[in-house]
Deep mutational scan, measured.
Amino acid sequence: RLRTTILPEQLEILYRWYMQDSNPTRKMLDCISEEVGLKKRVVQVWFQNTRARERK
């Protein structure tokens, strides 16, 4: 499996959503993934990793 590259524009959108809610619902993940143009699972893992980084 290839690692997904997240573009700066996509990152900006993801962080904007993250500021609103760091733990989005499944429905929100659907909306975010549509807006960003990434698979739902990629967005979900990005949120998990970002929460983990914040805890450090």
Rank of each mutant, 00 (worst) to 15 (best):
P8Y: 04
E9Q: 09
S33T: 09
K39T: 13
I6G: 03
D30S: 12
P8R: 08
L29I: 15
D21C: 09
R26M: 15
I6A: 05
E34H: 07
V45R: 09
S22R: 12
T25G: 11
W17G: 04
M19D: 12
L38R: 03
Q44C: 09
V43W: 03
F47L: 02
Q20K: 11
D30E: 13
V42H: 07
V45L: 11
V43F: 00
D21K: 09
F47P: 03
L7I: 10
R16N: 13
W17H: 12
R55K: 10
I32S: 01
R16E: 08
E35K: 07
S22N: 13
R41F: 08
R1N: 15
E54K: 05
E34T: 09
Q48N: 09
R16G: 11
I32Q: 00
N23P: 00
N49G: 06
A52Q: 11
S22E: 13
R1V: 02
L14C: 04
S22P: 15
T50Y: 03
Q20H: 08
R51Y: 03
T25E: 10
Q20V: 10
Q10L: 03
S22Y: 05
N23Q: 09
F47C: 02
F47E: 04
T50A: 10
M19L: 14
Q44H: 07
R51Q: 09
M19Y: 14
V36T: 12
V45K: 08
F47W: 01
I32G: 01
R53A: 11
L14G: 00
W46P: 03
A52R: 13
V36Q: 00
M28Y: 01
C31K: 13
E12C: 00
L2A: 10
L14M: 05
E12V: 04
R55W: 03
R51I: 06
I32K: 01
K39H: 15
T50M: 13
W17I: 10
R51V: 02
A52Y: 07
N23H: 10
Q48V: 07
G37A: 02
L7F: 02
N49R: 09
G37I: 02
K39V: 03
Q10I: 01
T25S: 12
K40F: 02
E12G: 01
V43Q: 03
M28E: 12
V45D: 14
D30P: 06
E9T: 01
R53D: 12
V42W: 05
Q48Y: 14
N49C: 05
P8G: 08
E54G: 07
